[in-house]
């Protein structure tokens, strides 16, 4: 009994509720006529699509910068890379890597500036990150209209200038990564092996990085900045580095997302994208100050599982689509829970 109590205390009741809810969804699914294999396949695909975006949270949490609500900044770098690679008509796997290659320097520069800003506002990173994300998305809305892209696949047909709100990458690099060694079981089950491998590769790199001297220092800065400073670590440099890493992973993450999804969503598309990523990480067991790769994997799976399963199961049961509402309540409830749990605030 005590062990159960301790387990619940450590995991936190919201996480357990969510896990139990998901298990129930999977159990109930066949009885209400939802094909489990398709649902499971969907969950896996969405897991792969979102995994890197969730992973992008880890460096900043570890260095004590808090949850990266400024993820849209990284996404913008990724979008610029993606759009440019389409403009260059790069196709297939080289196309995706062109996008990533172009996105990388942009992400590094944006992340660097963003990191410098966050160093000036220690203690209030999260609120400012949110609004930096929003402002940059709004700013890019103007840019998408103005930037001199001209590929007929992307610009508005009637005006000849300004990018469309969604750009299809079907003819370029849709599922370029996903389809590497992908396989089907039956009609409905599709396994995007390449995307998984790519995600696991990044997770592995992150795991190694966190064990290097720099990665150790980064974690220590998040754990106790005063201790780190007393040990000769330059706190601001570590924080900036973590922000650059997070931003860069955000850029890669959105490209992985788009190649699987098949569309590049511009304008207000990236606006709210930080929230599901943050929620997933927290559901996986991370806190505002600590996050691990296990948290990323577990959290993304649980969260995407719920997002995939609720609409189909609940729709079949109640003949109504409550998925959007459930998504809002679950993700924001989870963030709220994490924010109120940490009562110790260092200034």
């Amino acid at each position: 009994m005590n062990r159960i109590k301790k387990f619940i205390e450590e995991a936190g009741w919201p996480r357990i509720l969510i896990a139990v809810f998901l298990v129930i969804l999977f159990i109930v699914a066949p009885f209400v006529g939802v094909p489990v294999d398709a649902a499971f396949s969907d969950t896996l695909v969405r897991f792969g699509m979102n995994g890197v975006l969730v992973l992008a949270m880890v460096p900043m949490v570890q260095s004590g910068c808090g949850l990266n609500f400024g993820l849209p900044l990284g996404i913008i770098a990724g979008l610029l890379g993606a759009v440019t690679s389409v403009e260059l008509e790069a196709k297939g796997i080289p196309g995706v890597f062109t996008a990533m290659a172009i996105a990388t320097p942009i992400a590094v520069v944006l992340g660097w500036g963003y990191g410098l800003l966050l160093n000036k506002v220690k203690g209030e990173e999260m609120m400012i990150a949110t609004y930096v994300g929003f402002s940059s998305v709004a700013f890019m809305c103007i840019m998408w209209l103005v930037l001199p892209y001209s590929s007929s696949n992307m610009v508005w047909g009637y005006a000849g200038v300004g990018l469309r709100t969604t750009v299809s990458v079907e003819e370029f690099w849709q599922r370029a990564i996903s389809d590497i060694a992908a396989f089907n079981i039956g009609d409905a089950f599709y396994f995007p092996t390449g995307m998984f491998l790519f995600f696991l590769l990044l997770c592995g790199l992150m795991w190694v990085f966190m064990r290097t001297r720099t990665g150790t220092a980064m974690t220590t800065v998040g754990s106790n900045p005063d201790y780190a400073r007393a040990s000769g670590v330059n706190i601001n440099r570590m924080r900036t580095l973590s922000v650059i890493l997070s931003t860069w992973l955000g850029a890669l993450g959105i490209i992985v997302y788009e190649q699987s999804f098949g569309f590049i969503q511009l304008y207000m598309g990236p606006f709210m994208m930080a929230f599901p990523a943050v929620a997933a990480l927290l559901i996986g067991g991370a806190s505002v100050k600590k996050a691990s790769i296990i948290n990323v994997i577990v959290g993304t799976f649980l969260f995407q599982g719920i997002l995939t399963m609720t609409p189909s199961v609940i729709n079949s049961m109640l003949q109504t689509d409550m998925s959007e509402v459930i998504r809002i309540i679950v993700s924001n409830g989870m963030i709220l829970y994490a924010l109120t749990r940490v009562t110790k605030v260092r200034s």
Partner: peptide, 14 residues
């Protein structure tokens, strides 16, 4: 306490 704004913001969403 100390992060009222971001919390009230998320509370709004919730």
């Amino acid at each position: 306490r100390g992060r009222e704004m971001v919390t009230s913001y998320i509370l709004g969403f919730f």
